[in-house]
Simulated scan of single mutants.
Amino acid sequence: MSADKPATITGRINAEALRLLEENPAGLQWSELNARLAEADPSWHPKTINGCVWKLVETFPDQVHKPAKGLFQLLKYR
């Protein structure tokens, strides 16, 4: 796989989540982010998507934060 497309499923989900947050400067609610990720690739298991979203802040503390309960936003749009 190329550098712009991660080899692992979680890597691809995380990359897509960051892309979606980039497109939505005000941030996305947990349920909306989950739904959009499920639409992006129906082959991704819902529990894998949920786990990736749940850990976004932990995985990318330098890029993602939660300004309110259930809301994910890129730090640069804080």
Score class of each variant (00 low, 15 high):
L21Q: 03
E16Q: 15
P6C: 01
L18F: 03
N34E: 15
K47F: 05
N24Q: 15
E22F: 06
A15R: 14
L21F: 07
A17H: 11
L28P: 11
I9Y: 02
N50I: 04
Q73G: 05
G27H: 13
N14P: 00
A68E: 15
W54I: 08
I9T: 13
P61A: 03
G11P: 08
E58R: 14
L74K: 10
T8N: 02
E39V: 13
K5S: 06
N50G: 07
E23T: 07
A68Q: 14
P42R: 02
Q63N: 04
E58M: 09
Q63K: 14
N14D: 14
E16M: 12
K5D: 07
H65K: 01
D62N: 15
W54P: 01
D41C: 01
A40I: 02
I13W: 04
A7Q: 10
W44P: 01
P6M: 06
H45T: 11
R19P: 00
Q63S: 05
W44N: 02
P6K: 12
L18D: 00
G70F: 14
P67G: 03
K5W: 07
L71N: 07
A17N: 11
D62E: 15
Q63Y: 01
N34W: 13
P42S: 01
V53N: 08
V53I: 14
H45E: 12
I13F: 03
P61G: 05
I9P: 00
S43V: 06
T59W: 07
K5G: 00
P67W: 01
H45S: 11
L18M: 01
E23K: 13
